[in-house]
């Protein structure tokens, strides 16, 4: 028999890079799914790079109204000095778009980190311990769902910043108001997973061994429950951008002197659109669309790739491939081999 035998499991030693969440999926993907994932990753990478290097890339500051040549002037059409023109307030649109990326990234990071930690912890405790704590938390989660999320965010941003909006005050107000909206989502997912995992034999086996409750929760349940998080995390990030822009658009965002914010710029551009001034609305709008699109593409592709049934694969030729091992213990070494290997 010429069939070569291979174990049907993938080898473990794919190195550190092969095990990183996104890179692993990138390797698995084929065809359209790969195209979507790559496109999303490229957009996200550009978004993040722009945010990090905003001070280098942007020709002017986000609140800069004049330079050595004097004031910029309001509503100037795109020119060599201002490649995307200037706003009604006299800011440089290009610089505001670039700086806006920084604000968006900061808000996303803070919002998602807070909601992940709070959501995971609450979900784990509530799912594993159950009882009245669980019921109370579920009711609170449902109550939060019942509010329109933007309304909730507005109320919170008022409560947190008290109308003041410095850079960090504004960012935290925006981030925390988004956090409160998203905690129930993480909480729900983790709680459901925890309840499922609680009944798994490996948790029962840990109970049988006499492991303490915190040990079971954090060593056995937690890591297994957080596997779906990268997907929710990416999808929520894009929603976070939209919520931030929505807050800014409604005037609950960050003052233009404290930081650049796309939603605020869009709001100020409202009246321009009717008078034929397209550049003040187009570029911040495009920035929002592209960043949301990029993150959503990544999230959706990760979602599809995480499910073996949705994951695309290359067709194989007939009679190709290697025979996988059956469950016969043929591969099990003899006692002599074990002795030799253990020596």
């Amino acid at each position: 028999m010429t069939t070569e035998l291979v174990a049907s499991v993938p080898p473990t030693s794919r190195g550190f890079w092969g095990r990183l969440p996104v890179l692993k999926q990138l390797r698995q993907s084929v065809g359209l799914q790969r195209g979507m994932l790559v496109a999303g990753l490229v957009i996200v990478a550009i978004f993040v790079l722009v945010a990090i290097f905003a001070p280098v890339i942007a020709p002017y500051g986000f609140a800069q109204l004049r330079d050595a040549q004097g004031p910029f002037g309001a509503q100037q059409p795109p020119s060599a000095a201002h490649i995307m023109g200037t706003t009604v307030g006299g800011y440089d649109v290009y610089s505001r778009v670039i700086w806006g990326a920084q604000t968006a990234v900061l808000v996303i990071v803070i919002a998602v980190v807070f909601s992940i930690f709070a959501g995971i912890f609450l979900g784990l405790v509530s799912g594993y311990i159950g009882g009245w704590l669980d019921r109370v938390l579920v009711v609170i989660g449902d109550a939060v769902y019942a509010f329109p999320s933007l309304l909730l965010a507005i109320v919170l941003s008022i409560v947190i910043s008290g109308g003041q909006s410095s850079l960090w005050g504004g960012i935290f107000a925006a981030a925390l108001s988004i956090t409160v909206v998203y905690i129930p989502q993480y909480y729900r997912v983790i709680r459901a997973e925890t309840i499922r995992i609680k009944a798994e034999p490996y948790v029962e086996s840990a109970k049988m061994l006499g492991a303490s409750t915190p040990r079971i929760m954090f060593r056995h349940v937690l890591r297994n429950a957080t596997r779906t998080l990268p997907i929710i995390f990416t999808l929520n990030s894009s929603e976070a951008i939209l919520t931030l822009a929505g807050l800014g658009f409604l005037g609950f965002g960050i003052e233009p002197t404290a930081a650049a914010e796309w939603g605020y710029d869009l709001n100020k551009a409202l009246s321009d659109v009717t008078s034929g001034i397209w550049w003040t609305a187009l570029f911040p709008g495009l920035a929002i669309v592209l960043s949301v699109l990029g993150i959503t593409l990544v999230g959706e592709s990760l979602n599809d790739l995480a499910d073996p049934r949705l994951r695309g694969r290359k067709r194989v030729k007939a009679k190709s491939g290697t025979m996988s091992l059956t469950s016969v213990d043929a591969a099990l070494p003899s006692d002599v081999e074990i002795l030799e290997e253990n020596r």
């Binding site: 694969r313 007939a318 009679k319 491939g321 290697t322 025979m323 996988s324």
Partner: peptide, 16 residues
């Protein structure tokens, strides 16, 4: 009859 499957670990032959 021969049947092969496409899996994450490459082609796997099930029936030969």
């Amino acid at each position: 009859l021969s049947i092969s499957f496409a899996t994450d670990a490459g082609a796997v032959k099930a029936v030969d």
